[in-house]
Design a protein around this nucleic acid. Structure first.
Lengths: 207, 207, 207, 207
DNA sequence: TATGAATGAGATTTCATTCAT
DNA sequence: TATGAATGAAATCTCATTCAT
C-alpha cells in the first residue's frame, strides 16, 4: 500500500537497512489504521487495535507518531498525496481544458469507485473534524494543479467563471456520494455510470 | 428546535402534562447531542457529556433511547424529517419540473448554508458509518417526493435519464461541500454563490 | 481514620443517607492512598492500586477527586487539618509562652513519633513537590495559632526575635528527622528522647 | 559537576582515554537525573528523559547503572560524598569544639542555601524512600567526622549528652527546611538569617 | 562500549451502561 | 419517570528495560 514511501518525517536519519525496517512497521501501522476506519469509522480506531493488527506493541506506534491525532493527520496527508498522484496520472499541462479535465476526472472517478480503503478514508476526513484544520489545508496543496487547470479553463472561456470550490463541489465531490452508495450496496451501479457522471460534471461547469 | 415533536416511541401513554415534560427532556438530550457533534464530531459525543448539557442524569437518557447508537439513529431520522419538511416548503407536485426543482433546491441550499447544527450533523451521517444502514435507508424515504419529481422530469424529457443517485450526487450533495467550507472558514462565500451553484446543478441534470 | 469528616467539597448537597455512603467510599480511597504512600512513597500510588485497596472501581475515584494530583492535594489538606487539631489539643491562648509552647510541642512530637501514616505522609509532602504550591500554602494556615504564639513570645521577650520559619525549622521540623529514623529502625529511641528533644528545641529559641 | 570522579564500578579496566570518555557519559547521566529531580521530583525521573537530557541512548544508562534504583542510589552516594567534602572544608580535628562546629555548620549552611540541585536532591532522599535503606546507611559514613566531633564535644562537656541523631536533627536538619522555603519562594531570607540560624543551632546543643 | 528500536506491563483516565432508590 | 452513584472494560499513552547490531 504505502510501499512506495521511503522517506517520512522522522527525527534523525539512519542507515538504509534500519530505515527499511522502520518503514515496514510504520506502513503496517498506517495500513492497520486504514483497515479499522474502513471497518467502522473513526470510532473503531483504538490504538490497541491498531497495534494488534499491525503486529506491533502499542508503545511502538508512539515511536512513529506523536499521538492518535498525529497518526490520523499523517495518514490523511499520505493518502491525499497518493490520491493526487493517481489523479494527475497521464495528465499534462499541455492538454486542452476538455482533455485535461477528462483525464483527471476519470482518474479520480476510478480511484473513488474502486472501493479502496484510502478513498473511503479521505471522504470521511473531508466531511468530519477527524483531521485538524491545519492538516486539511496542507492536503489542499496536493490538488493545486487541478485548480490551475480550472483557472486556465476560466481564462480560456471554456468553463464558468466561478470559485474553484464550486467547481470541485460539482465535479469531484459528487463522486464521494457515489462511492458511499457503492460501499453501502455493491452492485448498485453498472459500468456506464461513470460516463453519465462525467457528462453531468462537465455540463455543470462548461460554458 | 424539536419542540414540534409531540409523539415518540415510549412504552406507555400518559396524561398530557407528563408527556409534555418528557418531550422537553427528550428534546434537551437530542439538542445536546447535536451540540456536541457540532463542536467536535462523533468523538465528542459522550453520554455523560450529553447528560450534563441536557441537564439530566445519564440514566435518564436510557429511558428515552436504548443506547448510544439508538440516540444517534433517532436523531438522524428526526433531522432528516425536519430537513425534508424544509426541503418541500412551498413545493407542490403541480409545479413544472423546472419550477419544482428550483423551489426544492433553494430550500435545501438555504438550509445547508445557514450553518445550522442539523445540516452539519446530517452531512457527517451521510459520509461516515455513524448511523447504521437500516436507519440510513429509512432516511431516504423522506426525500421520496424529490425523487418522484426527478422521475417525472425524466419522463417529460426535461432532465437526463440517469439514476436518482446521480442526480442527487450532482445537485444536492455538492451543497454539503460548500457547507463544510463555510464552516471551516466563514466569509468565504458571498450571496451570489447560491445562484451560481444552482445554475451548475441544473446544467448538470437538464437535458 | 477520617471518620470525623462528614462534609467535603462536592458539587451538590445530597440527603444524609447518600452522603454517609459517599463519605465512607471517599475515606476508603484516602486511606488507601495513605497506605500506599506509607508503603513505598509517591511512586507506589497508582490509581489502580488505590482502587483495589479501597475496594472500589478505578472510575469511582474520579467521582471524588478530579485526578491523582487532586487526590494527593486533598489528602494533604485533610491530614494537615487533622494534624493541627492534634497540635492544639489542650492548648489555650491564655497560657504562658512557655506552657503553650510546651503543650503544642509535645502534642506534635507524640503525633510524629507515634508512627502514624499521616505523619510520614506530611513529612514527605513538606520535602518534595508532591503537593502543588497552592495547596502547600493553604496547609500553612492550619498552624497559624502556633505562629501567633511565637509572635507573642517575641513581643514578651521570651523567645528570640527571628522569622517564624526559623522557629519552625528549629523546633517542629527536627521531629520529622527523628520520625524518619524511627521509621527506618524502630527501637532506636527510648522514651526519654522526647524530653531531650524538647529541651533542645526550647533552648534554640528561648531568649 | 562530577568531573572529579575518575573511578567507578565498572566491569573491566580500559586505557585512560576510553575511561575519560566513559566518565563524561556517566556524569552526563547523573547530571541529567539531578536536573529532572530538581525540576519535578522523583516522578519526573524517567529513564528516557534522563537519556535524552544526557545525550545518550537509554540502553547506555544500563551500561553504567544496573537499573533505575541503582542510578538513584549511586547518585545519592556521590552527592553525599561531595556534600561531606564541602562540609569539612577548612575543618581540622585540632579545632576547638566551638570552632569546629562553627566551620562545619557554616559550610553546610552555605551548601544548602546556595540553591544547588544536589542539596535539594539530598533533602528529598532523606525524607522519602527514594534510596534504599542500605544506601542510606552508607551515606551516613560520610558525616562520621562530624559525629566524632560531637562525641568529643560531649566528652569535653561542651555539648549536651544526647544521641547524635538529636544533634543532627537540631543543627543540620533545620537547614533543609530553610532550603525548601527558599526554593519555594526566593527572596524570603536576607543574609543575616544564617547567623540567626547558627545561634539557634548552637543554643540547642550547647551545655 | 554504544545505540536506536522495540516492547510488555502498567499508568491514568474515560465512557457506555446499570443499579438502587 | 428520574436520578446520582457506581462500575468493568477499555482507551490513550508512558516507562523501565532489553535486544540486535
Amino acid at each position: 500500500m504505502f510501499i512506495l514511501f521511503f522517506t517520512y518525517h522522522c527525527k534523525k536519519n539512519r542507515e538504509m537497512v534500519k530505515l527499511q525496517k522502520s518503514i515496514e512497521k510504520r506502513n503496517a501501522i498506517l495500513e492497520a489504521t486504514l483497515d479499522l476506519i474502513n471497518e467502522g469509522g473513526y470510532q473503531m480506531v483504538a490504538m490497541g487495535k491498531v497495534a494488534k493488527i499491525a503486529g506491533v506493541s502499542p508503545a511502538t506506534i508512539y515511536l512513529y507518531f506523536e499521538n492518535k491525532q498525529d497518526l490520523i493527520n499523517q495518514l490523511y496527508l499520505i493518502c491525499k498525496e497518493e490520491f493526487s498522484k493517481t489523479a494527475f496520472n497521464n495528465y499534462s499541462e499541455e492538454m486542452s481544458i476538455e482533455e485535461g479535465f477528462k483525464v483527471i476526472w476519470y482518474n479520480i472517478a476510478r480511484y473513488k469507485m474502486n472501493g479502496t480503503k484510502e478513498a473511503y478514508f479521505l471522504s470521511q476526513c473531508d466531511n468530519t473534524p477527524m483531521v485538524d484544520n491545519e492538516t486539511f489545508q496542507k492536503g489542499l496543496d496536493f490538488i493545486e494543479p487541478m485548480i490551475q487547470l480550472w483557472y486556465r479553463g476560466i481564462e480560456e472561456k471554456k468553463i464558468k467563471s466561478v470559485s474553484p470550490y464550486l467547481i470541485y463541489a460539482n465535479t469531484v465531490y459528487p463522486l464521494g456520494f457515489l462511492m458511499n452508495i457503492q460501499k453501502k450496496d455493491t452492485n448498485t451501479f453498472n459500468n456506464s455510470i461513470l460516463d453519465d457522471a462525467f457528462k453531468m460534471a462537465w455540463d455543470s461547469i462548461k460554458l
